[in-house]
């Protein structure tokens, strides 16, 4: 009997950032629950969700930290960028101001994560075409100039939501494969890598419990 969904090989930590009301929590909800959450309350501080996905035959657990967009939480949410493997930066295609703030979010993301962190730009609310305030081409150009991956998505219809999360994971996985991500480093690091189910168990011992202990 299989032990359910717990045999994943990697954990990737994501963070979702962007202005208030762009739909960060709704994107997360759509991704983890496959449902649209109307009347979503403002996020208080930071919340999180998980889902296990598969990339190139590997089970990967995404641990996603959804941050509050309100300015008053900035000081708190900044502390969550540490060790994120992926950052989803969200704006609302019907509100230009949320797009204009992207450079400030990007600065935070670049300063507070490590250079290998995959940053994915999401233009949310693509279902509201009639109210569009930011063109696809414009955002695409911004993404290209800054080396970001980019999609327009809709947390309401679910359109492209899955792709955004999965594309990010694929990119991270690719970075691991080509060695640009160092998995053996200490700290919460880039991401956790549980010893894979595929390899023989003894590999588990590659990291001896150290007696570094607590020096306080």
């Amino acid at each position: 009997m299989a032990a359910g969904p717990y045999n994943y090989s990697y954990i990737f930590k994501y963070i979702i950032i962007g202005d208030m009301g762009v739909g960060k929590s709704c994107l997360l909800h759509q991704f983890t629950e496959k449902k649209f959450m109307a009347d979503c309350p403002h996020t208080i501080g930071v919340e999180f969700g998980t889902r296990i996905i598969e990339v190139s035959g590997q089970k990967i657990k995404l641990q996603i930290w959804d941050t509050a967009g309100q300015e008053r939480f900035r000081a708190v949410t900044r502390s969550y960028y540490r060790g994120a493997a992926g950052a989803l930066m969200v704006y609302d295609i019907t509100r230009r101001s949320t797009y204009n703030h992207l450079s400030s979010w990007l600065t935070d993301a670049r300063n507070l994560t490590n250079p290998n962190t995959v940053i994915f730009l999401i233009g949310n609310k693509s279902d509201l075409e009639a109210q569009r305030d930011v063109t696809y081409e414009e955002a695409k150009q911004f993404a290209d100039e800054n080396g970001l991956m980019f999609l327009e998505a809709s947390a309401k219809t679910g359109d492209n939501v899955e792709d955004a999360f999965l594309e990010t994971a694929r990119k991270i996985y690719q970075n691991i494969q080509d060695g640009s991500l160092d998995l053996n480093a200490a700290e919460s690091g880039v991401q956790h890598k549980p010893s894979t189910g595929g390899r023989p168990n003894p590999l588990n011992t590659d990291q001896q419990p150290s007696n570094e202990g607590c020096r306080c």
Binding site: M1, A3, S9, I11, H192, P194, N204, T205, Q207, P209
Partner: peptide, 16 residues
């Protein structure tokens, strides 16, 4: 005892 590294994998076997 071996699960003392940063990364944890609770194997299906262990769950059982």
């Amino acid at each position: 005892r071996l699960l003392s590294s940063d990364s944890v994998e609770v194997s299906p076997l262990l769950c059982q």
